[in-house]
Write a protein that binds this DNA or RNA. Structure first.
Lengths: 166, 166
DNA sequence: CCGTTGACTGCATAAGTATGCAGTCGACCC
DNA sequence: GGGTCGACTGCATACTTATGCAGTCAACGG
Protein backbone atom coordinates (compact mmCIF):
# COMPACT_ATOMS: atom_id res chain seq x y z
CA UNK A 1 0.00 0.00 0.00
CA UNK A 2 3.05 2.14 0.37
CA UNK A 3 3.50 1.09 -3.22
CA UNK A 4 3.19 3.99 -5.62
CA UNK A 5 6.06 3.70 -8.07
CA UNK A 6 8.75 1.43 -6.72
CA UNK A 7 7.22 -2.02 -6.39
CA UNK A 8 7.58 -3.61 -9.79
CA UNK A 9 10.69 -1.66 -10.76
CA UNK A 10 12.37 -2.17 -7.44
CA UNK A 11 14.44 -5.18 -8.32
CA UNK A 12 17.74 -3.39 -7.89
CA UNK A 13 16.25 -0.20 -6.64
CA UNK A 14 18.33 -0.06 -3.53
CA UNK A 15 21.65 -0.31 -5.32
CA UNK A 16 20.64 2.37 -7.80
CA UNK A 17 19.46 4.63 -5.07
CA UNK A 18 22.69 4.27 -3.18
CA UNK A 19 24.66 5.06 -6.28
CA UNK A 20 22.56 8.17 -6.73
CA UNK A 21 23.25 9.12 -3.14
CA UNK A 22 26.97 8.81 -3.66
CA UNK A 23 26.74 11.02 -6.73
CA UNK A 24 24.75 13.63 -4.89
CA UNK A 25 27.13 13.60 -1.97
CA UNK A 26 30.13 13.93 -4.24
CA UNK A 27 28.48 17.10 -5.49
CA UNK A 28 29.05 18.50 -2.01
CA UNK A 29 25.67 20.16 -1.56
CA UNK A 30 23.90 17.73 0.74
CA UNK A 31 23.55 19.05 4.25
CA UNK A 32 20.73 17.00 5.72
CA UNK A 33 18.99 13.74 5.05
CA UNK A 34 15.82 15.62 4.20
CA UNK A 35 17.67 17.46 1.44
CA UNK A 36 18.84 14.13 0.16
CA UNK A 37 15.28 12.83 0.20
CA UNK A 38 14.17 15.86 -1.80
CA UNK A 39 16.91 15.40 -4.40
CA UNK A 40 16.12 11.71 -4.68
CA UNK A 41 12.47 12.46 -5.25
CA UNK A 42 13.44 14.71 -8.15
CA UNK A 43 15.27 11.74 -9.55
CA UNK A 44 12.21 9.56 -9.10
CA UNK A 45 13.32 7.60 -6.10
CA UNK A 46 10.44 7.34 -3.67
CA UNK A 47 12.08 7.12 -0.27
CA UNK A 48 11.78 8.52 3.19
CA UNK A 49 14.31 9.90 5.59
CA UNK A 50 14.39 6.61 7.47
CA UNK A 51 15.63 4.73 4.46
CA UNK A 52 18.15 7.39 3.63
CA UNK A 53 19.45 7.18 7.16
CA UNK A 54 20.02 3.46 6.67
CA UNK A 55 21.67 4.02 3.31
CA UNK A 56 24.00 6.60 4.72
CA UNK A 57 25.09 4.24 7.42
CA UNK A 58 25.66 1.43 4.94
CA UNK A 59 27.67 3.69 2.68
CA UNK A 60 29.72 4.92 5.59
CA UNK A 61 29.09 8.55 4.72
CA UNK A 62 30.05 11.12 7.29
CA UNK A 63 28.86 14.58 8.13
CA UNK A 64 31.39 17.35 8.58
CA UNK A 65 31.28 21.06 9.23
CA UNK A 66 32.56 23.08 6.36
CA UNK A 67 33.12 26.51 7.84
CA UNK A 68 30.21 28.88 7.35
CA UNK A 69 28.28 26.57 5.11
CA UNK A 70 27.22 24.34 7.98
CA UNK A 71 27.12 20.59 7.84
CA UNK A 72 27.73 18.60 4.69
CA UNK A 73 27.81 14.90 4.01
CA UNK A 74 31.02 13.64 2.48
CA UNK A 75 32.62 10.40 1.42
CA UNK A 76 34.51 8.67 4.20
CA UNK A 77 38.17 9.37 4.68
CA UNK A 78 39.09 5.86 3.76
CA UNK A 79 37.61 6.27 0.32
CA UNK A 80 39.11 9.70 -0.32
CA UNK A 81 42.41 8.49 0.98
CA UNK A 82 42.38 5.48 -1.23
CA UNK A 83 41.58 7.62 -4.24
CA UNK A 84 44.46 9.96 -3.51
CA UNK A 85 46.91 7.14 -2.90
CA UNK A 86 45.86 5.43 -6.11
CA UNK A 87 46.43 8.64 -8.03
CA UNK A 88 49.84 9.06 -6.54
CA UNK A 89 50.82 5.51 -7.34
CA UNK A 90 49.59 5.76 -10.87
CA UNK A 91 51.58 8.93 -11.32
CA UNK A 92 54.71 7.50 -9.80
CA UNK A 93 54.56 4.37 -11.89
CA UNK A 94 53.76 6.35 -14.98
CA UNK A 95 56.55 8.84 -14.58
CA UNK A 96 59.39 7.03 -12.95
CA UNK A 97 59.14 3.30 -13.47
CA UNK A 98 61.19 1.55 -16.12
CA UNK A 99 60.21 -2.05 -15.55
CA UNK A 100 58.52 -4.43 -13.19
CA UNK A 101 59.60 -8.01 -12.76
CA UNK A 102 58.63 -10.63 -10.25
CA UNK A 103 60.83 -13.45 -9.00
CA UNK A 104 58.80 -15.63 -6.73
CA UNK A 105 57.78 -13.47 -3.78
CA UNK A 106 60.02 -10.60 -4.75
CA UNK A 107 59.07 -7.80 -7.06
CA UNK A 108 61.90 -5.84 -8.60
CA UNK A 109 60.96 -2.42 -9.86
CA UNK A 110 63.47 -0.41 -11.84
CA UNK A 111 62.98 3.33 -11.75
CA UNK A 112 64.67 6.40 -13.05
CA UNK A 113 67.79 7.28 -11.07
CA UNK A 114 66.95 8.49 -7.58
CA UNK A 115 63.25 7.86 -7.88
CA UNK A 116 63.05 4.56 -6.07
CA UNK A 117 62.14 6.09 -2.70
CA UNK A 118 59.32 8.02 -4.30
CA UNK A 119 57.87 4.94 -5.93
CA UNK A 120 58.27 2.93 -2.76
CA UNK A 121 56.50 5.67 -0.85
CA UNK A 122 53.59 5.58 -3.26
CA UNK A 123 53.39 1.82 -2.90
CA UNK A 124 53.46 2.03 0.87
CA UNK A 125 50.77 4.66 0.79
CA UNK A 126 48.49 2.44 -1.22
CA UNK A 127 48.49 -0.15 1.54
CA UNK A 128 48.12 -3.20 -0.63
CA UNK A 129 47.30 -6.25 1.41
CA UNK A 130 49.57 -8.19 -0.86
CA UNK A 131 52.65 -6.26 0.16
CA UNK A 132 54.59 -7.15 3.28
CA UNK A 133 56.98 -4.28 2.72
CA UNK A 134 59.21 -2.39 0.32
CA UNK A 135 62.85 -1.40 0.25
CA UNK A 136 64.07 1.42 -1.92
CA UNK A 137 67.61 1.86 -3.17
CA UNK A 138 68.50 4.52 -5.66
CA UNK A 139 66.89 3.24 -8.81
CA UNK A 140 65.44 -0.05 -7.61
CA UNK A 141 62.54 -0.90 -5.37
CA UNK A 142 62.27 -4.32 -3.87
CA UNK A 143 58.73 -5.38 -3.05
CA UNK A 144 58.18 -8.31 -0.73
CA UNK A 145 54.85 -10.02 -1.34
CA UNK A 146 53.05 -11.96 1.36
CA UNK A 147 52.48 -15.09 -0.73
CA UNK A 148 52.75 -16.45 -4.25
CA UNK A 149 49.15 -15.70 -5.17
CA UNK A 150 49.64 -12.26 -3.68
CA UNK A 151 52.72 -11.77 -5.83
CA UNK A 152 50.77 -12.72 -8.93
CA UNK A 153 47.89 -10.42 -8.14
CA UNK A 154 50.34 -7.66 -7.43
CA UNK A 155 52.14 -8.11 -10.70
CA UNK A 156 48.90 -7.96 -12.60
CA UNK A 157 47.77 -4.93 -10.69
CA UNK A 158 50.96 -2.98 -11.12
CA UNK A 159 51.61 -3.71 -14.74
CA UNK A 160 48.08 -2.82 -15.73
CA UNK A 161 47.90 0.36 -13.69
CA UNK A 162 48.70 3.02 -16.28
CA UNK A 163 45.98 1.96 -18.66
CA UNK A 164 43.37 0.26 -16.57
CA UNK A 165 42.91 2.58 -13.65
CA UNK A 166 42.59 5.85 -15.48
CA UNK B 1 23.98 30.95 39.38
CA UNK B 2 25.14 28.29 37.08
CA UNK B 3 28.39 28.79 38.95
CA UNK B 4 29.41 25.75 40.94
CA UNK B 5 33.06 25.07 40.17
CA UNK B 6 34.11 26.77 36.97
CA UNK B 7 33.78 30.51 37.55
CA UNK B 8 36.98 31.56 39.22
CA UNK B 9 39.11 28.85 37.70
CA UNK B 10 37.68 29.29 34.26
CA UNK B 11 40.30 31.60 32.88
CA UNK B 12 41.52 29.11 30.31
CA UNK B 13 38.91 26.53 31.07
CA UNK B 14 37.67 26.27 27.53
CA UNK B 15 41.06 25.48 26.06
CA UNK B 16 41.72 22.84 28.70
CA UNK B 17 38.35 21.29 28.18
CA UNK B 18 38.86 21.09 24.47
CA UNK B 19 42.22 19.47 24.97
CA UNK B 20 40.56 16.95 27.24
CA UNK B 21 37.94 16.32 24.59
CA UNK B 22 40.60 15.64 22.00
CA UNK B 23 42.29 13.20 24.35
CA UNK B 24 39.05 11.39 25.06
CA UNK B 25 38.18 11.20 21.41
CA UNK B 26 41.60 9.88 20.53
CA UNK B 27 40.81 7.08 22.96
CA UNK B 28 38.11 6.02 20.53
CA UNK B 29 35.37 5.31 23.04
CA UNK B 30 33.17 8.36 22.71
CA UNK B 31 29.90 7.62 20.95
CA UNK B 32 27.64 10.48 21.96
CA UNK B 33 27.98 13.96 23.35
CA UNK B 34 26.31 12.82 26.55
CA UNK B 35 29.05 10.26 27.05
CA UNK B 36 31.57 12.99 26.55
CA UNK B 37 29.80 15.13 29.13
CA UNK B 38 29.95 12.25 31.61
CA UNK B 39 33.66 11.69 31.04
CA UNK B 40 34.33 15.38 31.37
CA UNK B 41 32.45 15.50 34.65
CA UNK B 42 34.71 12.75 35.94
CA UNK B 43 37.61 14.98 35.07
CA UNK B 44 36.03 17.88 36.90
CA UNK B 45 34.84 19.86 33.95
CA UNK B 46 31.34 21.11 34.62
CA UNK B 47 29.73 21.34 31.22
CA UNK B 48 26.52 20.51 29.47
CA UNK B 49 25.79 18.84 26.19
CA UNK B 50 25.20 22.22 24.56
CA UNK B 51 28.73 23.35 25.25
CA UNK B 52 30.17 20.07 24.13
CA UNK B 53 28.25 20.38 20.90
CA UNK B 54 29.87 23.75 20.31
CA UNK B 55 33.30 22.40 21.20
CA UNK B 56 32.93 19.53 18.81
CA UNK B 57 32.05 21.85 16.00
CA UNK B 58 35.00 24.10 16.77
CA UNK B 59 37.37 21.17 16.91
CA UNK B 60 36.00 19.83 13.65
CA UNK B 61 35.40 16.40 15.13
CA UNK B 62 33.33 14.01 13.09
CA UNK B 63 31.13 11.07 13.90
CA UNK B 64 31.58 7.84 12.01
CA UNK B 65 30.11 4.39 12.14
CA UNK B 66 32.57 1.79 13.18
CA UNK B 67 30.92 -1.46 12.24
CA UNK B 68 29.00 -3.09 15.06
CA UNK B 69 30.15 -0.67 17.67
CA UNK B 70 27.87 2.08 16.41
CA UNK B 71 28.83 5.72 16.14
CA UNK B 72 32.13 7.08 17.38
CA UNK B 73 33.63 10.53 17.32
CA UNK B 74 37.02 10.76 15.65
CA UNK B 75 39.56 13.37 14.71
CA UNK B 76 39.03 14.88 11.31
CA UNK B 77 40.96 13.52 8.39
CA UNK B 78 42.78 16.81 7.98
CA UNK B 79 44.29 16.52 11.43
CA UNK B 80 45.20 12.86 11.15
CA UNK B 81 46.66 13.57 7.76
CA UNK B 82 48.64 16.49 9.03
CA UNK B 83 50.00 14.41 11.90
CA UNK B 84 51.08 11.67 9.54
CA UNK B 85 52.63 14.08 7.09
CA UNK B 86 54.50 15.85 9.86
CA UNK B 87 55.85 12.54 11.09
CA UNK B 88 56.95 11.60 7.64
CA UNK B 89 58.65 14.91 7.09
CA UNK B 90 60.42 14.76 10.42
CA UNK B 91 61.63 11.31 9.61
CA UNK B 92 62.76 12.23 6.14
CA UNK B 93 64.63 15.28 7.33
CA UNK B 94 66.13 13.37 10.21
CA UNK B 95 67.31 10.44 8.15
CA UNK B 96 68.23 11.79 4.79
CA UNK B 97 68.93 15.49 4.92
CA UNK B 98 72.49 16.78 5.01
CA UNK B 99 71.92 20.50 4.95
CA UNK B 100 69.38 23.23 4.34
CA UNK B 101 70.30 26.57 2.90
CA UNK B 102 68.16 29.40 1.64
CA UNK B 103 69.10 31.83 -1.10
CA UNK B 104 66.38 34.41 -1.38
CA UNK B 105 63.22 32.57 -2.37
CA UNK B 106 64.99 29.31 -3.05
CA UNK B 107 65.67 26.63 -0.50
CA UNK B 108 68.42 24.18 -1.35
CA UNK B 109 68.27 20.93 0.55
CA UNK B 110 71.09 18.45 0.24
CA UNK B 111 70.18 14.87 0.95
CA UNK B 112 71.82 11.50 0.90
CA UNK B 113 72.27 10.15 -2.61
CA UNK B 114 68.96 9.21 -4.19
CA UNK B 115 66.84 10.47 -1.35
CA UNK B 116 65.85 13.80 -2.80
CA UNK B 117 62.53 12.55 -4.22
CA UNK B 118 61.58 11.11 -0.86
CA UNK B 119 62.26 14.34 0.95
CA UNK B 120 60.48 16.34 -1.71
CA UNK B 121 57.51 14.02 -1.38
CA UNK B 122 57.40 14.53 2.35
CA UNK B 123 57.53 18.28 1.85
CA UNK B 124 54.74 18.17 -0.70
CA UNK B 125 52.67 16.04 1.60
CA UNK B 126 52.98 18.55 4.38
CA UNK B 127 51.31 21.21 2.26
CA UNK B 128 53.10 24.18 3.67
CA UNK B 129 51.45 27.39 2.59
CA UNK B 130 54.90 28.86 2.23
CA UNK B 131 55.91 26.47 -0.51
CA UNK B 132 55.01 27.13 -4.11
CA UNK B 133 56.59 23.87 -5.19
CA UNK B 134 59.57 21.54 -5.01
CA UNK B 135 61.88 19.94 -7.51
CA UNK B 136 63.88 16.85 -6.65
CA UNK B 137 67.06 15.76 -8.37
CA UNK B 138 69.11 12.91 -7.04
CA UNK B 139 70.59 14.37 -3.88
CA UNK B 140 69.21 17.88 -4.00
CA UNK B 141 65.75 19.30 -3.48
CA UNK B 142 64.95 22.77 -4.64
CA UNK B 143 62.16 24.45 -2.71
CA UNK B 144 60.50 27.51 -4.16
CA UNK B 145 58.99 29.74 -1.51
CA UNK B 146 56.09 32.05 -2.21
CA UNK B 147 57.70 35.18 -0.72
CA UNK B 148 60.69 36.33 1.31
CA UNK B 149 58.86 36.17 4.65
CA UNK B 150 57.61 32.76 3.63
CA UNK B 151 61.16 31.68 2.89
CA UNK B 152 62.30 32.84 6.30
CA UNK B 153 59.50 31.09 8.12
CA UNK B 154 60.19 28.00 6.14
CA UNK B 155 63.86 28.02 6.96
CA UNK B 156 63.13 28.36 10.63
CA UNK B 157 60.53 25.65 10.49
CA UNK B 158 62.67 23.16 8.65
CA UNK B 159 65.89 23.67 10.53
CA UNK B 160 64.16 23.35 13.88
CA UNK B 161 62.07 20.33 12.96
CA UNK B 162 64.11 17.47 14.45
CA UNK B 163 64.21 18.91 17.94
CA UNK B 164 61.22 21.15 18.26
CA UNK B 165 58.40 19.11 16.89
CA UNK B 166 59.00 15.92 18.77
C1' DC C 1 32.74 53.52 39.64
C1' DC C 2 29.70 52.52 35.87
C1' DG C 3 28.45 51.37 31.11
C1' DT C 4 29.77 48.76 27.06
C1' DT C 5 31.57 44.92 24.71
C1' DG C 6 32.77 40.30 23.60
C1' DA C 7 33.61 35.54 25.02
C1' DC C 8 31.51 31.80 27.11
C1' DT C 9 27.86 29.08 28.97
C1' DG C 10 23.26 26.85 30.45
C1' DC C 11 18.49 26.18 29.58
C1' DA C 12 14.84 24.99 26.80
C1' DT C 13 13.68 23.53 22.62
C1' DA C 14 14.14 23.09 17.59
C1' DA C 15 16.38 20.43 14.13
C1' DG C 16 18.12 16.37 12.54
C1' DT C 17 19.02 11.28 12.75
C1' DA C 18 18.29 6.42 14.11
C1' DT C 19 15.37 2.55 15.09
C1' DG C 20 11.49 -0.80 16.86
C1' DC C 21 7.77 -2.57 14.74
C1' DA C 22 4.88 -4.09 11.25
C1' DG C 23 3.79 -4.66 6.39
C1' DT C 24 5.14 -5.96 1.51
C1' DC C 25 7.48 -8.63 -1.73
C1' DG C 26 10.13 -12.21 -3.99
C1' DA C 27 12.49 -16.72 -3.38
C1' DC C 28 12.24 -21.20 -1.93
C1' DC C 29 10.32 -25.43 -0.04
C1' DC C 30 6.83 -28.74 0.98
C1' DG D 1 -1.47 -23.35 -2.96
C1' DG D 2 0.22 -22.26 1.51
C1' DG D 3 4.09 -21.60 4.75
C1' DT D 4 8.61 -19.77 5.85
C1' DC D 5 12.40 -16.78 5.37
C1' DG D 6 15.06 -12.81 4.48
C1' DA D 7 15.61 -8.28 2.35
C1' DC D 8 13.68 -3.92 2.20
C1' DT D 9 10.81 -0.13 3.54
C1' DG D 10 7.53 3.36 5.87
C1' DC D 11 5.62 5.09 10.03
C1' DA D 12 5.93 6.83 14.40
C1' DT D 13 8.83 7.92 17.74
C1' DA D 14 13.09 7.71 20.58
C1' DC D 15 17.50 9.44 20.55
C1' DT D 16 21.08 12.76 19.59
C1' DT D 17 22.72 17.18 18.27
C1' DA D 18 22.29 22.24 17.29
C1' DT D 19 20.84 26.78 18.54
C1' DG D 20 18.04 31.17 20.07
C1' DC D 21 18.01 33.55 24.02
C1' DA D 22 19.42 35.30 28.25
C1' DG D 23 22.71 35.49 32.05
C1' DT D 24 27.56 35.81 33.91
C1' DC D 25 32.03 37.44 33.81
C1' DA D 26 36.42 39.76 32.60
C1' DA D 27 38.39 43.55 30.04
C1' DC D 28 38.35 48.13 28.66
C1' DG D 29 37.28 53.15 28.40
C1' DG D 30 35.40 57.16 30.16
Amino acid sequence: MSASSAPTLSITSKAKRQRAILDLVRGGVIGTQEELVAELHQRHFAVTQATVSRDIRELGLIRVYHGEAGARYVLPMAELDAELAADRLRNAVDEHVQSIEFVDLLGVIHTNPGCAPLVAGALDGSRFDEIAGTIAGDDTVLVIARSRPAAQRLQRRLTSLPDASL
